[in-house]
Simulated assay, not measured.
Amino acid sequence: MINRLKENEKAAFEELVALHKNSVINTCYRFLLNQEDAEDISQEVFIEIYQSISSFRGDAKLSTWIYRITVTKCLDEIKKRNRKKRISSLGKLLHIDTIIPWIAGDSMPDKALQEEERFREISTVLNTLPENQRVAFTLSKIEGFTNKEIAEIMNTTTIAVESLIHRAKKKTAEELTTILKNKDT
């Protein structure tokens, strides 16, 4: 497939997009917390792949290279955003209309609402992590990559990835414990 891509074969690129589209969008969504932004950035990822496939050396797997581009594009987008826009994106994620009946006293929140709230709290905590910890933690715990694959994506060592994930786990555990304690009071 790589040779076909390097020869600018349209069918090969369509196959590549079909194979990786969902995982690229999902990765973008986990970083950007907004479906539209995730779709926009995923298009940029595939444009970058198309434009730079000739420079792909094969040092890593093609999927690792694609994730490296995806993570880089997501981080670039996050850097462009100001704090206000990030809060706005989280607001879109909340789907306020789903809790209005509950606030009015009509019914208790259902399981989906409780899961949504948990996801929001976890996302908020993840956004407090330093960028490199958040990237390593997201790729490990949410995307399911191995430490070796994460090291390739982040262009660092496996030991550095282990350290980043350990620090991220420690900080998120502390933050989530604080949130839970505040809910109980």
Rank of each mutant, 00 (worst) to 15 (best):
residue 79 K to W: 11
residue 177 T to S: 05
residue 165 I to C: 12
residue 156 T to H: 00
residue 185 T to A: 11
residue 127 N to F: 11
residue 166 H to N: 10
residue 62 L to G: 06
residue 133 Q to W: 12
residue 75 L to S: 02
residue 166 H to V: 05
residue 97 D to G: 01
residue 8 N to A: 14
residue 109 P to F: 05
residue 180 L to K: 06
residue 6 K to H: 10
residue 176 L to H: 08
residue 83 R to K: 09
residue 172 T to N: 03
residue 136 A to T: 14
residue 183 K to E: 13
residue 71 V to Y: 11
residue 127 N to Q: 12
residue 123 S to Y: 03
residue 45 V to P: 05
residue 63 S to C: 05
residue 93 L to S: 04
residue 175 E to S: 12
residue 28 C to K: 01
residue 76 D to A: 01
residue 184 D to S: 15
residue 78 I to L: 14
residue 164 L to E: 09
residue 125 V to F: 06
residue 140 S to Y: 01
residue 183 K to L: 11
residue 46 F to R: 02
residue 17 V to R: 04
residue 10 K to W: 12
residue 181 K to A: 05
residue 80 K to S: 06
residue 52 S to N: 09
residue 38 A to L: 01
residue 60 A to C: 09
residue 149 E to N: 08
residue 85 K to F: 12
residue 130 P to C: 13
residue 101 P to S: 07
residue 159 I to N: 12
residue 139 L to E: 06
residue 15 E to P: 03
residue 140 S to K: 01
residue 171 K to F: 00
residue 10 K to P: 05
residue 86 R to L: 05
residue 65 W to D: 11
residue 12 A to K: 14
residue 117 E to T: 05
residue 135 V to W: 00
residue 95 H to M: 08
residue 44 E to G: 05
residue 78 I to D: 00
residue 99 I to E: 06
residue 161 V to G: 06
residue 54 S to P: 10
residue 184 D to I: 15
residue 34 N to L: 07
residue 81 R to W: 12
residue 45 V to R: 00
residue 115 E to Y: 13
residue 58 G to M: 10
residue 29 Y to D: 03
residue 11 A to V: 14
residue 181 K to W: 04
residue 122 I to Y: 09
residue 181 K to S: 00
residue 78 I to F: 04
residue 125 V to R: 02
residue 169 K to V: 15
residue 122 I to W: 10
residue 2 I to H: 13
residue 122 I to M: 04
residue 116 E to G: 01
residue 131 E to T: 15
residue 73 K to L: 01
residue 83 R to H: 11
residue 18 A to L: 15
residue 36 E to I: 13
residue 161 V to P: 08
residue 25 I to K: 07
residue 33 L to C: 00
residue 40 D to Y: 02
residue 23 S to Q: 07
residue 98 T to F: 11
residue 90 L to S: 03
residue 101 P to F: 15
residue 123 S to G: 08
residue 163 S to F: 02
residue 23 S to M: 04
residue 115 E to L: 15
residue 59 D to W: 08
residue 39 E to R: 07
residue 27 T to A: 10
residue 76 D to P: 00
residue 109 P to L: 12
residue 117 E to F: 15
residue 108 M to S: 02
residue 61 K to Y: 03
residue 64 T to I: 04
residue 10 K to L: 14
residue 111 K to A: 04
residue 27 T to C: 09
residue 39 E to I: 00
residue 28 C to D: 03
residue 56 F to E: 08
residue 12 A to Q: 09
residue 90 L to F: 05
residue 114 Q to K: 14
residue 19 L to P: 09
residue 88 S to M: 10
residue 59 D to G: 08
residue 119 F to M: 10
residue 28 C to I: 01
residue 159 I to V: 14
residue 165 I to P: 03
residue 15 E to L: 06
residue 22 N to V: 09
residue 96 I to H: 02
residue 13 F to S: 09
residue 105 G to D: 04
residue 174 E to F: 12
residue 26 N to C: 10
residue 16 L to S: 03
residue 97 D to I: 13
residue 106 D to E: 13
residue 91 G to R: 01
residue 1 M to L: 08
residue 157 T to I: 10
residue 32 L to W: 02
residue 130 P to I: 11
residue 61 K to P: 00
residue 21 K to G: 03
residue 177 T to A: 05
residue 69 I to K: 14
residue 101 P to C: 06
residue 124 T to W: 11
residue 9 E to N: 04
residue 177 T to I: 10
residue 116 E to W: 07
residue 109 P to C: 03
residue 166 H to C: 11
residue 44 E to A: 08
residue 116 E to P: 10
residue 76 D to V: 12
residue 138 T to R: 01
residue 181 K to C: 12
residue 82 N to Q: 01
